[in-house]
Design a protein around this nucleic acid. Structure first.
Ligand SMILES: [Mn+2]
Ligand SMILES: [Mn+2]
Ligand SMILES: [Zn+2]
Ligand SMILES: [Zn+2]
Lengths: 145, 145
DNA sequence: TTATATTTGCAACATAATTGCATTAAAATG
DNA sequence: CATTTTAATGCAATTATGTTGCAAATATAA
């Protein structure tokens, strides 16, 4: 449980990615949070530990390999969360609902809430579904009321 | 049917907005399209007819008044479509599904497809729902197969 | 026609994201 | 362990998107 680093190193190797400091740091940060993490936040936390460009490339590589998935919030800002199920390079299956809190602006992966199948007009072929619910998260709705 | 301009002028007056060239032009463009229109596209089409900043302000004003609604596509780009139902300044009700085609990149408002109600974990309070389906639109799925 | 309130354009700024290229460093090889 | 190979990083420059303040222009009310 404690030796995250060893676990992350395995994850990188498994995906044919070299074990580098920026990559381990991103995994460390993301796994230590209970909600999706925005690019700006990551950039701020990593500071001069890694170049902005490197951060973008790390995120892109992770996404391609199925290690993390991207969620855009209401403002279009990119947020990232570790994939829960067995996502892989050519198969993401993160079709769970995402919840964007109006108050704390966190984005929660509601892994237990699946997106209901959809009936679309004739001709349309649905490949992926992306549902973002907006409102107040549990913590904030407590505090406010 | 043909006298859009008169119709648009009424719409502006009704919402307390002055009848200006950039506003009429935006309404003209949006109403002439069968799918949502991206900000970059609008900017390109309007060219030097209006300043970029003016375009942003026109779009913002229209959104606030319930004349248009904004949809972010998979890349986070802002797209705009005329509101169908009776949306107003303080009440948008465009909770229909949006369809983003992987091939032509158009975004269709599926006005007839409502977003199903959602059961979220205890504590979460849902205010709005935003569902984007991605895949192939009717036209593209014809051409490709 | 004049007054007023709104809207526009311009300039400057902020942030997010991408590209090319030289340098560095990880891992594979012998 | 030393060397080669390949992948990854950092830096500089560039593009795209969106915002703000303010003076000038203009639509509408008086
Ligand atoms: Mn998620
Ligand atoms: Mn719509
Ligand atoms: Zn919250
Ligand atoms: Zn299409």
């Amino acid at each position: 449980m404690e030796d995250n680093t060893a676990r992350f190193e395995k994850l990188l190797v498994k995906n044919g990615l070299k074990r580098t400091a920026p990559r381990l740091q991103v995994l460390e940060i993301l796994s230590g949070r209970d909600s999706a993490t925005s690019q700006p936040y990551l950039e701020q936390v990593m500071g001069k530990d890694a170049d902005r460009v490197t951060l973008y490339r790390v995120l892109q590589a992770f996404e391609e390999k199925g290690i993390i998935h991207k969620v855009l919030d209401q403002q279009g800002t990119a947020n990232y969360a570790i994939c829960s199920d067995g996502c892989s390079a050519h198969e993401h299956h993160d079709e769970h609902v995402h919840f964007n809190c109006d108050n704390c602006h966190k984005i929660y992966c509601l892994d237990t809430v699946k997106i209901p199948a959809l009936k679309v007009p004739a001709g349309f072929k649905v490949d992926r579904l992306n549902l973002i619910a907006t409102g107040l998260c549990a913590g904030c709705s407590d505090k406010i009321n």
